[in-house]
């Protein structure tokens, strides 16, 4: 079998030329288009990936913000609750203190009013008692001479120094004798001079307010022996006892 060298060489050259031609007119443009399309696809994919990542970032941001909002809401609610609780406690304390104060004031006022009412009642009772006693004593009538005798005895019972002080250093001693009913002063002048141990210038006077009894007005001292004085002392003593009880 004969092999033609020229044909072999020409076919080899032909094929190499065809390789160059197809490389230039077929492979290069087609591969370029495919590469460009792949690049475009990759570009779109990259953009989509970037958008997806951005969306993920935004989603994460929103989730974080939402979580932050929930935490902030819880914190604010807790703070509001605490503030409300503190305010409520403060208001309750204030109201309790105000109520206690009002109660204490009311109690004090009530106590004061009660004490005043009691004092007034005692005063009225004492006044009523003394008035009643005065009326009864006045209706029963009294013996002024007996009271005057008792007064003279009490003068006699005084020490000398006090009797001297009663006299006020005057002679005759000016004594004003007040009685409920008029008395004959002569015997009583003698009785009184004997009790004082000095002469007496006796002046008689009347005072129905004494109920019963006498008052001896010395120069500096008044010696009272009468129901008026006794009732006044009893009233004063009753009133003083009431005040002591009320303050206790």
């Amino acid at each position: 079998m004969h092999v033609d060298g020229w044909t072999l060489l020409l076919q080899a050259v032909n094929f190499l030329i065809l390789v160059w031609l197809l490389r230039h007119f077929l492979y290069r443009p087609v591969l370029a288009v495919i590469a460009e399309r792949q690049a475009a696809t990759e570009r779109v994919r990259t953009q989509a990936e970037a958008i997806r990542q951005e969306a993920d970032g935004m989603r994460h941001g929103l989730e974080d913000a939402r979580a932050g909002l929930a935490a902030e809401r819880d914190r604010l609610l807790a703070a509001a609750r605490a503030a409300a609780e503190a305010e409520r406690a403060a208001l309750l304390d204030g109201a309790r203190a105000e109520a206690d104060r009002l109660l204490a004031d009311a109690r004090a006022r009530l106590e004061e009013e009660r004490r005043q009412a009691l004092a007034a009642l005692h005063g009225q009772a004492a006044a009523l008692g003394t008035d009643l006693a005065g009326r009864l004593l006045r209706a029963a009538g009294g013996d002024d001479g007996r009271f005057l005798d008792a007064a003279c005895r009490s003068v006699e019972d005084l020490p000398e120094a006090q009797r001297h002080a009663l006299a006020g250093g005057e002679t005759p001693v000016p004594v004003r004798l007040v009685t409920v009913t008029p008395l004959d002063p002569a015997p009583w002048r003698e009785r009184l001079a004997a009790a004082l141990g000095r002469p007496v210038a006796l002046e008689a006077a009347e005072d129905p307010g004494l109920i019963a009894g006498v008052e001896l007005h010395f120069p500096h001292t008044v010696l009272r022996h009468s129901w008026k004085q006794a009732l006044a002392e009893a009233t004063e003593e009753l009133t003083r006892d009431d005040d002591a009880h009320a303050s206790a």
């Binding site: 033609d4 044909t7 020409l10 032909n14 030329i17 065809l18 031609l21 197809l22 007119f25």
Partner: peptide, 22 residues
């Protein structure tokens, strides 16, 4: 240089392929 039938046919095929590619 003798130009044989396969060479001529190959030229035709080269022209056909290149023209089709273009």
């Amino acid at each position: 240089v003798p130009v044989t039938l396969p060479v001529v046919t190959t030229w035709g095929l080269m022209a056909l392929l290149t023209l089709a590619a273009v």
